[in-house]
Design a binder for these strands. Structure first.
Length: 276
DNA sequence: CGAGAGTCCTGAAGGC
DNA sequence: TGCCTTCAGGACTCTC
């Protein structure tokens, strides 16, 4: 499931195809995603040039001639979505919901999403403002994200630290897998109330989140070359986790059995000995 | 405002 | 073998 590293890997994989290309056609086979794909999308973007692709949290923002009467295509991959380059000669398969056809080398960008938790929306104008983006927390790999930030926002918060760092208004891009992994890295038990963690420990947690995400992006980068394969299957790297999905198996550090619990209807994994 | 539950959806996995 | 149930997940949205 795409977390921030996968979204960033997607962005880097698409960039060389998109920048400078002109959109010449759009096919929407299924508009019912998390929200409906706007009916007027094709009319808005056809014949416009793509100037870049940015990422904000897990949202991808295609700059579609935003400074020249266009706007931004806002994409979210949900949990089962993927965007990849292919050609019109490759027949769409089940759940290939959108094709965005480019003027270069018969390339098209295909959106595939079995569970349709993703989104493809349009933002008019030169500035990418949108209710989905307006209240997002800092990027985890930016300087704005530090222990002081987490400490300040967490005061008097009873919510568990794991759910706290998964809140996109606190920090973007920390999904269920990396939340468990980062808390293991910081030696913090996921059930502790966010408001009861010291500033120093939040410093450790920030470092662990950065490390976890950076490693994952680097791992994604190693498969970047063949990321967009001929068959259109995205080459997501296989993630090696310390605790996630390892319930009842030995901790890789101390051999204590990893525990699985439920928090906010999500599974959480931790080592009862390494994390306090 | 915060906390917790509900919601969308499909495919995989497990039970019988 | 095949049907049925349960679960997974991101993140918005609703209720209290």
């Amino acid at each position: 499931m795409p977390e921030l590293p996968e979204v960033e890997t997607t962005r880097r994989g698409l960039l060389p195809h998109l920048v400078g290309a002109t959109i010449i056609d759009v096919t929407v086979r299924e508009a019912r995603l998390r929200w409906p794909i706007p009916a007027g999308l094709k009319k808005r973007i056809v014949s416009r040039v793509i100037h870049g692709v940015a990422r904000r949290g897990k949202y991808l923002l295609w700059d579609v001639a935003s400074a020249d009467g266009g706007g931004f295509l806002l994409c979210h991959l949900g949990m089962s979505g993927s965007l990849f380059a292919t050609t019109a000669s490759v027949a769409p398969v089940k759940h290939d919901h959108v094709d965005i056809v480019l003027n270069v080398n018969k390339t098209l960008i295909r959106y595939h999403d079995p569970r349709r938790f993703g989104a493809m929306l349009w933002i008019d104008g030169a500035i990418p403002t949108h209710p989905l983006l307006d209240r997002l927390g800092p990027e985890p790999l930016s300087d704005d994200f530090d222990g002081a930030h987490l400490f300040r926002l967490s005061r008097n918060r009873a919510v568990s630290v794991k759910e706290f760092i998964m809140n996109a208004h606190v920090v973007v891009g920390v999904g269920n897998i990396y939340a468990s992994e980062a808390l293991f890295g910081a030696g913090i038990r996921p059930t502790i109330a966010a408001g009861r963690i010291s500033r120093a420990r939040y410093g450790l947690l920030v470092a662990a989140i950065r490390q976890t995400l950076t490693n994952a992006i680097a791992a994604g980068g190693t498969s970047l070359r063949d990321y967009v394969k001929a068959d259109g299957e995205p080459g997501y790297f296989q993630l090696v986790t310390m605790v996630y999905d390892r319930a009842q198996t030995p901790c890789r550090v101390c051999n204590t059995l990893v525990k699985m619990i439920r928090q906010g209807q999500r599974s959480t994994y931790f080592c009862p000995r390494c994390q306090h």
